[in-house]
Design a protein around this nucleic acid. Structure first.
Lengths: 220, 220
DNA sequence: TTCTTAATGCAACATATATCGCATTAAGGA
DNA sequence: TCCTTAATGCGATATATGTTGCATTAAGAA
């Protein structure tokens, strides 16, 4: 079954007008979305509220961003600055601890908490395209931290790493888990334990990932 | 400033009627919430849809559960059966792997995915009381898995553990992180790596958590 | 400048969500 | 059994959320 839409040649495509008013409206809307999310949270994000803050008509917002998750996803594309700076202290232990402290500070900051929660909800409520955008966003954030690992390898603090995701996940995943799932407290002892775990993992990566082949030697 | 509500004695408290119709309505509503969440997801959960499926009036649902997150939280209180069985294979390595496979299977199952996502959204959109209920729910789920650790300690596979949360988090937090944040693929190699990491951590817990006091001996 | 037309603003409209008053129902006690 | 009254069902109402038609505006090309 083919669509009932009449066939069109490529020349029939809509002429887009990316410059001028088009871009101005997008900038205003996207900025309004960010402000509303940080100051009030996802529950206060509506096409109406965004339109009012951006100074455009709500019908315009509806036409270009049919759902709330798309508003969030499009806002995110412009959010190029990082939330979390990647430290460079000269020691991988201190780098890890500083980085994790920044992550947990971000997860505790009210504005960032609201924004992060909004990304979660948008990712869940949105369609496949939206969750792809958000997943790509987070992967980009965390891949920036790989430079910490590379510097440590160059300094000889760590062996060459096979899987950088694995080490960064060991460092930060428990903090996210506590913030959003178990809601256990996120204190200094907890962060030190995560740092120690990530370090052990990075130093014994081969052994850890293939533990089943050398069952007696798991702890290296 | 005191409330304008007239003072009341304890005897004036509302007489509750927990049995009979009261309980019947609650059971019908809570069951409807669970069905809607598993079959359609949080986006389809409305007081109207719940009322229709439960066979009660929507005003009744509004009166007893003013918000959607409260519907979810109250449903959860009745959900006493575990999502994830705790294995007992006789080997902590196999226990860990089986348990993590169950977790990831749960995170992949469509019905459970919708339900879990709904818990997330409800926790974010709801008030403090709701997120407390959901946090308590998850902590209860994961504390059931401590028995795996205790059996391993009794068998002599693991040393006595100081912090069971830490080990379980090392095992499961990366899977949650991938499912909801980075959306990286969740394959066999990944799960084995998580198991190996949790094992190393459990076997070197003291060393890991206090790495800063013995910097040269971090890898034990 | 003038012309074409995509995009906007505006208003009317439709539907969904939430609240309230009131008559009716039924649980639990006398 | 009858009585009291908390809880429900029903309808009216208010507000929020989306959609559509159309005249107007302004970007980009001639």
């Amino acid at each position: 079954m083919r669509s009932s839409r009449p066939e069109v040649t490529e020349f029939d495509r809509v002429k887009e007008r990316p410059g001028g008013r088009n871009a101005r409206v997008r900038q205003a809307v996207v900025g309004a979305v960010l402000r509303i999310l940080q100051e009030q949270g996802y529950g206060s994000l509506s096409h109406r509220s965004v339109a009012a803050l951006a100074g455009v008509d709500s019908a315009t917002v509806y036409r270009r961003w049919p759902t709330r998750p798309r508003l969030v996803a499009d806002m995110l594309i412009d959010l190029s600055d990082t939330f979390v700076p990647v430290p460079n202290t000269g020691s991988i232990e201190r780098d890890f601890l500083t980085y994790l402290e920044s992550i947990t500070a971000m997860l505790d900051d009210p504005g960032m908490t609201k924004l992060t929660q909004a990304l979660f909800v948008a990712s869940i409520e949105g369609d496949e395209a939206v969750s792809d955008v958000l997943g790509e966003f987070w992967r980009g954030r965390f891949s920036r931290s790989y430079v910490m690992l590379e510097r440590a390898v160059q300094r000889g603090e760590l062996p060459p790493l096979l899987d950088q995701d694995a080490v960064v996940e060991a460092l930060v995943a428990p903090a996210w888990f506590r913030a959003f799932v178990s809601r256990l407290p996120n204190n200094e002892a907890f962060r030190r334990r995560c740092v120690g775990n990530a370090l052990v993992m990075a130093r014994n990566e081969l052994c850890v990932s293939e533990f089943r082949r050398v069952p007696g030697e798991v702890d290296c």
